[in-house]
Simulated scan of single mutants.
Amino acid sequence: MNKDLFSRSGLSLDRLRSFLEVAEAGSIAKSAPDSLSRQAQVSRQIGELETYFETELTVRRGKTIALSPAGERLAVLVRQQFDDLQGFINEQRKLPRTFRIGGGASMLEWMVIPAAGGIRKVLGNAALNLKSMRSRELVEAVRDGAVDFAVVREDALSEEQRAKTSLPVARLSFHLCVARSLLGTRPRSWLAQSEQWTALPWAAMAGGGQLDQEVRQAVEAACGRFVPAVECTSLLQVRELVAFGACAGVLPSIGMKRLAEEQVLSREFEPLMNYGRPLVLHWNDRQMRRRGIEKPVLEKLASHLAHPARKVT
């Protein structure tokens, strides 16, 4: 046992828990939004940890705080140790292990959830905890151990990460999808006449993401303007508006499954023909070693994600 670790006061599980809550919430106020007394306690506990470790764990940025580099490192260590302790408790209680899988909301819905049965079996009938985040946030979450695996865009990874800690699962193409009821008496070929697209009631995402910008710019280039009928927060909502016949929208190939062909017409969205997005399964080697997950298991996970509708064997 390292005697120096316990030779001074200021270190406790409760203090570390409070620090991790702040690290994950992003601020002391958000970690305890309904209790000023709890916020004061957390602030004091972080100060005590800073005294114990003899380093600054947070830095002030205007009216908020952020983790210092040392604080970010400590958050990773605390999360790992808490995960290991919880894993030990679950083992003694004969409970299944839990794995956290991250992805965008639409990727969880369209890719991870259909493959959940196969994923659980590969991981020894583990419990799954799904986390919805953007690709860039997911890469950080994998790095910090906040999620075990993530489905992300390949271009969100560095070249080294692509080569060493990712496996391909899908390549998305993009399609213009329109309910037949919106076309009236127009023939299917009308969809190819891009100069007419402004006549469609479009559904578009309002978050200003890369895909949203590409769609808006493509329609504006073809028609001179783009005025959505409905602005959404996710591709899931765009798909539902298309499915219910309320709007036209651009959807990735994986999001077109189970759209009734007799009700929805589609064609490849030509402005994005060269915009295919490879999706990959991404992990952290250090986290995999801790959790006892080897490369063959990762390859099986990627296979289930690539073919989510296949029968679990």
Rank of each mutant, 00 (worst) to 15 (best):
residue 2 N to K: 12
residue 4 D to A: 15
residue 5 L to V: 15
residue 12 S to I: 06
residue 13 L to K: 13
residue 16 L to Q: 04
residue 17 R to W: 02
residue 17 R to K: 09
residue 18 S to W: 03
residue 21 E to W: 03
residue 25 A to G: 11
residue 25 A to R: 14
residue 25 A to V: 12
residue 26 G to F: 05
residue 28 I to G: 01
residue 30 K to P: 00
residue 34 D to T: 15
residue 34 D to Q: 15
residue 35 S to D: 02
residue 37 S to D: 10
residue 38 R to W: 01
residue 39 Q to V: 09
residue 40 A to I: 10
residue 46 I to G: 02
residue 46 I to E: 01
residue 48 E to G: 13
residue 49 L to C: 09
residue 55 T to E: 00
residue 58 T to S: 11
residue 60 R to F: 03
residue 61 R to D: 04
residue 63 K to W: 11
residue 63 K to T: 13
residue 65 I to C: 06
residue 65 I to H: 10
residue 65 I to E: 08
residue 67 L to H: 06
residue 68 S to M: 06
residue 68 S to W: 10
residue 69 P to K: 11
residue 73 R to A: 15
residue 77 L to H: 14
residue 81 Q to Y: 08
residue 81 Q to G: 14
residue 84 D to H: 12
residue 87 G to L: 08
residue 88 F to L: 15
residue 91 E to L: 15
residue 96 P to K: 06
residue 96 P to C: 03
residue 99 F to P: 01
residue 101 I to H: 04
residue 102 G to K: 02
residue 112 V to W: 01
residue 113 I to G: 03
residue 113 I to T: 10
residue 114 P to K: 11
residue 116 A to L: 04
residue 118 G to D: 02
residue 118 G to W: 00
residue 119 I to M: 11
residue 121 K to N: 07
residue 121 K to F: 02
residue 127 A to P: 00
residue 129 N to T: 08
residue 130 L to W: 07
residue 130 L to H: 02
residue 133 M to W: 08
residue 136 R to H: 14
residue 136 R to W: 13
residue 137 E to S: 13
residue 139 V to P: 04
residue 143 R to L: 10
residue 146 A to F: 08
residue 147 V to Y: 03
residue 147 V to A: 13
residue 150 A to S: 14
residue 153 R to P: 07
residue 153 R to M: 12
residue 160 E to Y: 03
residue 160 E to L: 11
residue 162 R to S: 10
residue 163 A to G: 03
residue 168 P to S: 11
residue 169 V to E: 00
residue 173 S to W: 02
residue 173 S to P: 05
residue 175 H to W: 14
residue 176 L to R: 10
residue 179 A to D: 05
residue 184 G to Y: 05
residue 189 S to A: 14
residue 190 W to G: 02
residue 192 A to F: 08
residue 195 E to P: 01
residue 200 L to S: 09
residue 202 W to D: 00
residue 205 M to C: 08
residue 206 A to R: 12
residue 207 G to E: 10
residue 209 G to H: 12
residue 211 L to K: 05
residue 212 D to M: 11
residue 213 Q to V: 09
residue 214 E to T: 08
residue 217 Q to M: 12
residue 218 A to G: 07
residue 219 V to M: 07
residue 221 A to H: 07
residue 222 A to L: 01
residue 230 V to R: 12
residue 232 C to V: 14
residue 241 L to T: 04
residue 241 L to D: 00
residue 244 F to A: 13
residue 250 V to P: 02
residue 251 L to I: 05
residue 252 P to G: 12
residue 252 P to F: 06
residue 253 S to Q: 08
residue 254 I to F: 13
residue 255 G to V: 01
residue 256 M to Q: 15
residue 263 Q to W: 02
residue 264 V to E: 03
residue 267 R to I: 13
residue 275 Y to M: 05
residue 280 V to C: 03
residue 282 H to C: 03
residue 284 N to P: 00
residue 285 D to Q: 14
residue 289 R to G: 05
residue 289 R to T: 14
residue 291 R to A: 14
residue 292 G to H: 04
residue 304 H to S: 08
residue 307 H to G: 07
residue 308 P to Q: 05
